[in-house]
């Protein structure tokens, strides 16, 4: 089922980060809105970013254009969730 609410999107983003980066359940569960991502998580290099974006597309049924990808949307867990929610819930 595709997610239809903000919480579902947040959980999908959390699960994608956990699955792509190989994070423990506890580490992924500890992500809060202000948790820094790109530059703060050593696992999240540019190739891993490509995997995160593609898996988000698949799970949320969205398309992310390359010109929409910037440092800002990857800065924090909250920013990435906001970006994904804006796409998935419109």
């Amino acid at each position: 089922m595709l997610p239809d609410g903000k919480l579902e999107v947040e959980n999908a983003v959390r699960a994608v980060l956990r699955d792509v980066l190989g994070l423990s359940e506890a580490r992924a569960a500890a992500f809060r809105e202000g948790t820094p991502l790109f530059g703060a998580l050593p696992e999240l290099d540019s190739l891993a970013v490509a995997g995160v974006l593609t898996e988000l597309e698949d799970r949320l049924g969205i398309l992310i254009e390359d010109d929409e990808v910037d440092g800002e949307m990857l800065e924090t867990f909250g920013a990435l969730t906001e970006f994904a929610a804006a796409k998935a819930l419109k």
């Binding site: 699960a15 699955d19 593609t54």
Partner: peptide, 23 residues
């Protein structure tokens, strides 16, 4: 289970093919 496309069977688990480090 995280994949919404049609399937004959869905199973719980994480996509090994996405893992940045093989597992």
């Amino acid at each position: 289970e995280s994949d919404a496309r049609p399937a004959d069977l869905t199973v719980p688990g994480a996509p090994q093919w996405r893992r940045a480090e093989p597992d």
